[in-house]
Design a binder for these strands. Structure first.
Length: 930
DNA sequence: GACATCACG
DNA sequence: GACGTACGTGATGTCC
């Protein structure tokens, strides 16, 4: 049947169907394997509704669903910015795109696309062909870009609103008839597709001009005649840009197609094919509905296996006896071959200790499938080392270290082999010590963290119990504890093989479970852009370390010791007896029982509270609590900093190497341990001097860059507070502005005390403010504090909305999210009692703190490339600050490069209404640089 | 190992 | 209407 008079062609805009389906439905997943399926489900429903609605007299004789293909089209050749600001496709939609093609074919509807052409061009070409053949055409879409085609037998149909769009409909939308639509669009431009148009001219003005001058060329030629000076100038100045815009919006009616209208004839669906597809997708309701409609038997869809709460990976039971001891090159080569067959391998290293800077590699374990794992011991000793004689001999059954590494290194560095680890930063640092760069890799700890931050910890033991129902072999019995503890190289080989290989086996099984779950939970982007790429960056920073001057610390320790001794004598005199100043219990007894001071409050454990806030209140009246406070400050500085930091100076490097936990803090922040370099004193003058011991190497300088008020800026954006946003845009003192707004004090009459109160309130808001908390912080009556908060909400109403919405979201979903999609779970928000209060405040704080954490993570990930050409190293991160060491003379270049990265770290995935700004400082030590 | 305390953002 | 409350961390010393 040749398409001609009396025939009616339907063209369905496939992409529009997909996006509508995607956004209309919650993120559904296929029960059996977690494949995201929401958009496919919606798409099928829309197709079925379409089929049901088009059976009558006006049913089409021909029909096709038209899709876009490829993101690069001839329009990009004309204008490289075309559709440039379009957001990336959501991670969970991407895998559904091919399934919508499958669905169309399953419905037995023609499914057409062409590489390098937009669906709109194909639709234009077919519509014009149908019209030329004397038939009719209906375009199932409401896209305004297609409206230029309407008329003379071509109509559009908005399937959502169930309305036809004819020439009059187009006129209602554009103010002109279809033949002039491209002229109007060329002038008005389109922000969605990034078509520039004429600045300042919208659809209304454009229609006015076209109606007056006839068409675009006439208008541009006679632009001089326009009366309004601004409009005239715009058209003259941007004539070329407007002409380009017209080319961009004009659809190509001559798309070369490898099919004809006749190929699109309506066909009956094959019930078996269609139902098989729907059953495969596990659409229970839809399968039944369509089976009824087709008068066919609905296939049975098996119930999904129990996932994900109690996954039983018992198909392959754990059996430590099956693990292989690899002791020679032939055996190792067999493993390498097996790895190349599957393309991935779980890797775990055993070492002499937990400090990657000082630990030595003892052995390597590998796993390629559940239950299939081995251990390659490298430098195990022949005995436990408790033998007085001959403790250094190597055990039998080990190949020489170099020989093993010669075989393993190409695999570990092969871009085609994925290395899977649990906490890969540890293993990467161990390998880095011997010059091996492990890449590419996956990290099961970070996969768990990306999915379940806030729910549980992400150590191997916890994950193995939770997902594999298996308790890993404990390390304690192998190593012993206390003074008699041994290192792993002294563990007998038979035991070592079982323990080490099992770790690789567990890691591989965890990966098999957690990797597909990333999609289901929709945190693939988080894992791939915020977690995994941070590993090599942190590994490098930790290995760099920061130079700490032992003499400075040692002198300070001595000075503190002397002062403390003096204070102790003074305190004994005041108390009338000797006591342990470091014992809060004894301090409490002396203050409240022996001296009889008022206001002693006992806590849960029946002891008096003697925290700094309590002692500060007493210190105004009495000498003893004041001196205890002095002593405590010195004691803290000495024990935690000037003493302990000396012990952390690495003898080989002369530097201190902290370790950052990526998956520790629930909000996405890093945490620094062994030692913690994120809490080096700065607030007190005395403590701040400890930073003088953090120094630059000879010939170098320390550079510190920190985000200015990043959390408040993020709050201003997230809660959408115009007054705050404007203040940041002006560069105002944000706390003074808040104070001025709240207390009606003009900015030039601001006092430091009023500003201090406003500052406390600003921080309170970030923490999920309460009247009680603010009252305690400011030491004012609770009612007064509540008054401040009420006033704050009145002046900045978006804050209350944000807090209420966030709590509601957390209660509904059990988690909250950062702007970058990081999920922070708050399970306790559902509980009763005070725990729910804690959880609610944490939920309010988490998106703000977490977004700030995401921002600096992004900056850190981009930093190595940005400063690659500079003689500079990134050393430390302190939540909103980055510390660098740079050769003298290159400070300015470093600051410029690093600031650029930090201030734009949100780009391009998140647009912020508030600019991020970064302050910089330089100096020979950290005190100067900050 | 729990608890209190205090250092940081 | 009472209940307890600022958010997120890590290290240290005391005491059981």
């Amino acid at each position: 049947m040749t398409f001609g008079k009396g025939h009616h062609l339907h063209l369905i805009d496939g992409s529009a169907f997909i996006f509508r389906a995607y956004h209309a439905l919650p993120p559904l997943t296929r029960k059996s394997d977690g494949l995201p399926i929401g958009a496919v489900s919606g798409f099928c429903n829309m197709l079925q509704r379409y089929v049901e609605a088009n059976t009558g007299d006006d049913a089409p004789t021909h029909v096709a669903v038209i899709f876009d293909k490829g993101s690069h089209t001839f329009r990009n050749e004309m204008y490289d910015q075309y559709k440039a600001n379009r957001e990336a496709m959501p991670e969970d939609l991407r895998p559904q795109i091919p399934l919508t093609r499958e669905a169309t074919i399953a419905f037995n509807i023609a499914c057409e696309e062409k590489e390098g052409f937009e669906a709109d061009d194909i639709i234009a070409t077919l519509a014009v062909q149908a019209r030329a053949a004397g038939g009719r055409c209906t375009i199932i879409s409401s896209d305004k870009d297609l409206m230029q085609l309407v008329g003379d037998g071509v109509e559009m149909f908005d399937a959502m609103k169930n309305t036809r769009i004819d020439r009059e409909g187009v006129h209602a939308k554009f103010g002109v008839y279809p033949e002039s639509v491209v002229d109007v669009q060329a002038l008005a431009g389109d922000s969605v597709d990034n078509v520039p148009g004429a600045p300042g001219i919208g659809i209304k003005t454009a229609a006015l001009l076209i109606n007056e001058y006839g068409d675009l060329e006439a208008l541009l030629e006679r632009a001089e005649e326009i009366k309004q000076p601004k409009r005239r100038q715009t058209l003259i100045d941007h004539a070329e840009q407007i002409r380009l815009s017209r080319k961009l919006v004009l659809l190509d009616e001559n798309t070369p197609l490898d099919f004809t209208l006749d190929d699109l004839e309506v066909r009956e669906p094959d019930p078996e094919k269609l139902l098989t597809f729907l059953a495969k997708m596990e659409f229970r309701t839809l399968t039944k509905r369509i089976a009824d409609a087709l008068d066919a038997e609905a296939p049975v869809i098996a119930d999904a296996p129990p996932l994900p709460d109690a996954p039983k990976m018992a198909d392959v039971p754990f059996d430590a006896e099956q693990y292989e001891h690899v002791g020679d090159t032939a055996a190792l080569q067999k493993w390498i071959n097996a790895i190349y067959e599957v393309g991935y391998v779980a890797v775990d290293t055993e070492t002499t200790g937990l400090d990657e800077m000082t630990a030595d590699l003892v052995g390597i374990s590998l796993a390629t499938a559940p239950g299939k794992a081995c251990y390659i011991p490298l430098i195990h000793k022949a005995n436990r080392g408790d033998d007085l004689f001959g403790g250094d001999e190597l055990a039998e059954g080990q190949m020489p270290l170099e020989e093993a590494l010669k075989i393993l290194t190409p695999m570990l560095e092969d871009p085609a082999i994925l290395k899977i680890g649990q906490n890969m930063k540890f293993d990467a640092k161990i390998f880095a010590q011997i010059g091996i760069t492990v890449a590419p890799f996956d990290d099961t700890m970070l996969m768990s963290y990306a999915q379940h931050a806030g729910l549980h910890n992400h150590g191997m033991d916890a994950l193995s119990e939770r997902y594999l129902n298996h308790t890993p072999i404990p390390i304690k019995p192998l190593l012993g504890s206390g003074k008699s503890a041994i290192t792993f190289d002294k563990v007998p080989l038979a035991d070592a093989v079982k323990y080490a290989a099992e770790d690789a086996d567990i890691t591989l099984r965890l990966w098999q479970y957690l990797k597909p779950q990333l999609h289901t939970v929709q945190v693939t982007k988080v894992y791939e852009t915020l977690e995994r790429p941070l590993v090599p960056v942190l590994a490098a920073m930790e290995r760099s370390g920061v130079k700490v001057d032992r003499d400075t610390l040692s002198r300070m320790s001595n000075a503190f010791a002397q002062k403390m001794a003096g204070l102790e004598d003074e305190l004994y005199g005041l108390a009338g007896r000797k006591f342990n100043v470091g014992s809060p219990a004894q301090v409490g007894e002396i203050l409240f029982d022996e001296m009889g001071l008022e206001g002693g409050k006992k806590g849960k454990t029946g002891k008096y509270a003697t925290g700094a806030d309590v002692l500060e209140d007493l210190a105004t009246e009495h000498e003893l609590p004041a001196r205890v406070l002095d002593w405590r400050q010195l004691s803290k500085l000495k024990s935690t900093y000037t003493d302990a930091l000396q012990d952390h100076i690495n003898p080989d490097t002369g530097r201190v190497h902290t370790s950052y936990s990526i998956a520790g803090a629930s909000t996405g922040r890093l945490a620094s341990t062994d030692p913690n370099l994120q809490n080096i004193p700065i607030r007190s003058e005395e403590g701040r001097r400890i930073r003088e011991a953090f120094v630059a190497e000879e010939g170098k300088t320390l550079v510190a860059l920190d985000y200015s008020q990043i959390e408040l800026r993020i709050l201003a954006h997230i809660a959408d507070i115009p007054a705050l946003k404007e203040a940041f845009a002006r560069g105002d003192d944000i706390h003074a502005m808040t104070a001025s707004e709240m207390f009606d004090v003009p900015m030039d009459e601001m006092t430091s005390d009023i500003r201090r109160r406003a500052k406390a309130i600003n921080f309170g808001v970030i923490y999920g403010i309460s009247g009680f908390g603010l009252a305690r912080n400011l030491r004012i009556p609770r009612a007064e504090a509540q008054g401040f908060i009420d006033r704050y909400f009145e002046r900045f109403p978006g804050i209350r909305t944000y807090m209420d919405d966030t709590k509601k979201f957390a209660k509904e979903h059990g988690y909250v999210q950062t702007l970058f999609g990081r999920k922070i779970h708050t399970p306790e928000i559902a509980s009763k009692g005070p725990r729910a209060g804690f959880a609610a405040r944490a939920a309010i704080n988490a998106p703000i703190q977490g977004t700030a954490a995401d921002v600096i993570r992004r900056a850190m990930i981009r930093m190595p490339d940005a400063i690659a050409d500079l003689p500079a190293t990134m050393l430390l991160q302190v939540h909103d600050e980055l510390l660098f060491e740079v050769e003298k003379g290159s400070e300015d270049k470093l600051i410029a490069a690093a600031r650029e990265v930090m201030e734009n770290a949100n780009d391009p995935v998140v647009k912020l209404d508030v600019k991020l700004t970064v302050d910089a400082g330089t100096g020979a030590n950290w005190a100067e640089a900050h």
